[in-house]
Computed example of a mutant assay.
Amino acid sequence: MNRSRRTRRLLGAVTVGVVVLTVPACSLGPDDLPSVRAGVGETYDLSLEFTSVMNLPAGADVMMDGLRVGEVRSLQVSGPIVTVSAGIGSGTRIPADARAFVRQDTLLGDTYIAVTDEGGGAAGEYLPAGGTIPVSRTISPPQLEDTIAVLANFVNGGSIQRIEDVMARVNSVVPPLPAVRDLASVAALDMRDLAGRTEEIDRTLSGLNETALSFDDRTGALSAMFDSSSVHYWRRLAISVVAHIGQILPSVGSVYEGGLWMVPMLNSLADTGDVARGAWDEAPDTTVVLSRFLRSRIVPFAQKPSVDIEGIESAGGDQIVADAENLLRMLGAVK
């Protein structure tokens, strides 16, 4: 009897404990779990309006200048606007012209809000507690579907292949490495030469400056050349020149009509010019041959005249070089 009553009491106590633990657990969500990161201390409220926040969770970071300055408290949808309520550390002041972005550093990284200072507002103005960054100064992240569509279009649209083709064409046009090195060495030599002649450049610039100053000092005289009276003079001069040209043109026409006899002569002059041009083009080679002939033939003979007798034939066709040589040696003409 006592054992049965004690068992019933024990079962009742267990049931009451389970009910007490189960009822509060029904309202427990992921956002109610404590964060493993440290908080931001005392905070003040700040509202940020976005058109879309993708999958921004409550408790997400609010970053500014690479530092965590707050955290997202709640999100509220009001028509096309999503109002994000954030708690900002009391020691952090947000500029009045700040802009906000929803970012995700990596594909699987955490989503957070980045606040940046555009620097376009008045210095020393900051958002008060309870202030709002309107939707005009916030940028929402692109939809994941749009990002995937852009990537698919980039990969499947032939962009990578076109880039490879462009690189191949660039490689085919670019000269080989030795030529590039030669070009770089020449350019370096020119730059060094230019650097060593800065005095000449300064002198040229000084001359241009003095010329400009001279023009500036004579602006009165230059302006006088283009005043009303000068313009009238230039106009009359132009009319006179045109009138004289008009008188000359008929004479030119008569010379042209009566000068048909000059056509054969001009054709002969053209042929002579062609021949002269050919001779002019061949002049370097001819000059080289003539110079070689003078150096190898005329100059040595003029310095030491001599005759090289290769053979002497008699009336019968016999070679008598030995007899002639003995005769000349007896005469003392040769040694």
Rank of each mutant, 00 (worst) to 15 (best):
L48C: 01
A224V: 03
A38H: 09
T219N: 07
Y233Q: 09
L56P: 02
A302L: 15
S47E: 08
P142I: 07
L11Q: 12
D274F: 11
R5G: 01
L249N: 04
G278M: 13
A86P: 00
T198G: 09
T116L: 05
S47C: 02
R203L: 13
V299S: 03
F154W: 12
M54F: 13
I245S: 04
G121P: 05
G253Q: 12
S254N: 09
A195P: 01
V69F: 04
K335R: 09
V299F: 14
W280E: 03
R137C: 00
A270S: 12
I94F: 01
S185C: 02
A114Y: 04
A58C: 12
G59P: 04
M330G: 07
S74F: 05
V72E: 00
L237M: 12
L151C: 08
G258F: 14
R3V: 05
A122P: 05
R8I: 05
V289K: 10
T272I: 12
I94W: 02
I81R: 08
D285I: 11
D216Q: 13
L208H: 09
R162V: 08
V77R: 11
W261V: 07
A179Y: 08
Q76G: 01
R93S: 13
T272Q: 07
R297Y: 14
G79E: 03
R236V: 10
A168C: 01
D323S: 11
D110F: 10
G87L: 02
G124N: 06
V84I: 06
S296V: 08
G157F: 09
G207E: 09
T272S: 13
A221D: 11
G87I: 00
P305V: 05
D216E: 13
E257Y: 15
E145A: 15
V40C: 03
M167L: 15
I320E: 03
N55K: 14
W261Q: 07
R197L: 04
A100Q: 02
D202G: 06
V242K: 12
S254D: 11
A187H: 10
A123K: 08
A302H: 08
I113H: 02
I148T: 07
G273W: 13
T286N: 08
R181V: 15
E145D: 14
P142V: 06
A187M: 11
R292G: 05
L222E: 01
V23F: 11
N267D: 12
V252G: 05
